[in-house]
Amino acid sequence: MPFDGRRAGRSWPASLRFFLFMAILSIGGLNVARAQDGPPGITQRTVFPAFDPGAPACTPPTGLNKVLAHIQENDRDFLQGVDHGLAMAASDRGLKYRRLLIQNDTAKAIEQIRSLLADKAGALVATSSDPAAISHDLQKMIWSGAFVGTIVPPPATLLLNAPQYATGKVLTDAAIAHINAKLGGKANVVLLTQDSMEFLAPRFEVMRDGFNAMPGVTIVADIAPKPVTKEGGFETMKTILLANPKIDVVLGSDAVVTGALKALRAAGKDRPDQFLGGIDGEPEAVAEITKGDSPYKASISLSSPVFGYAMGQFAADWLEGKSIPQAMDILPIALTSNNIAQYEADLANPAPVYADPARRNGYLKMYGNICYDTRDRYVNFPWSSERK
């Protein structure tokens, strides 16, 4: 029986609390109490058309300050990349930028959002490990007329997601090809999941499906490190190695897989023929791939500085009364030795990428239209462009 963190008896995970919260809203009991606050947004799963950049402008928000704030969940590299892109866009568009690092403290996140609301901040991008807890305060920001951007969970005037199944499949296919070519079709696999985020489940479902179809492959651990950081990955892998000292494949987000690599090295269990692969294209993972002899073989980039820059630009557009996308796909890119140099240049300076539609479309795909006058149409359901 593999070590399965999903069976570890955690009560009421954040994702379940979120969906219970949404269910209560849909039943109407909570709507009655909060109807005076503002519209609930789009709560039913909706397929948005392609974004129309030529859509008519509308009224700019009034009474809000030209401030772009970033509630940053923690300081892992992926979110540092978001910060880099947002800061550059704010500078380019004349917005005051505020980064508020909360280090996984939900109470602090709520406090900061309420402070931004009181200060009449015009734009906010927020990430949190507990989306249900901050949901209503984000709605209050939207009702105030502010731009609200989120990465994966709603509510938002601009919600970003990756095609999660496709993202997981790109990484899984690379790992399977390695197992067949380098490991004789046999492998002990560790999946470092993010089960506290229900929205990310498809990326791990495709991993399980792919490996379970291989007779010579055993998933020896399927667990969600807590927190989703390098330290969380390190501690989780240390525990796994006590029961399973021979590990061939490790998949998860780059943050936790780099921590797992550190644990393998500390235990003397790292090998050049292993396949460690992650998602996010974080700098440490990219550096490992370029070494050539590292167990780290692949990273699926979600280009956080590029989409961070785009979010900052759309926040500025919103404050000018322009129409912006309601939702945006972050397209997965498999990093190889052939494209890493250009990728790193794009992350360092995302402005030219955003300015060139052909380059931008390689990273992002946009859907729907919304502006200040139509803000009652904000996204308040777990949007994905994927049908699966």
Rank of each mutant, 00 (worst) to 15 (best):
G54P: 11
A355Q: 07
S196R: 14
V148I: 07
I27R: 14
A310H: 08
G149W: 04
K322G: 05
R377K: 15
T167Y: 04
H178N: 01
E235T: 15
G232H: 01
F78L: 08
V189M: 00
G368R: 00
M22A: 13
T172A: 09
P295L: 00
D317I: 09
P357A: 06
I223C: 05
L101Q: 07
H70E: 10
D105F: 11
S323N: 09
S253E: 13
A224Q: 11
Y354I: 15
G63Y: 05
V353M: 03
K388N: 08
G233E: 01
T172C: 05
K96W: 10
S385Y: 05
T150F: 04
P39L: 09
T239K: 09
G5A: 02
N349C: 06
V379F: 03
A285F: 07
L335F: 08
T59A: 12
A8G: 13
A118S: 13
G281C: 04
M1S: 14
L86S: 10
A35W: 11
V217L: 03
G29D: 10
A263C: 05
A174L: 14
D119W: 07
E386L: 09
Q36V: 15
E344K: 15
A315W: 02
G168T: 03
V306Q: 05
P283A: 01
P39G: 09
A118C: 08
S304P: 15
T62F: 06
W143Y: 10
P131N: 04
A315R: 02
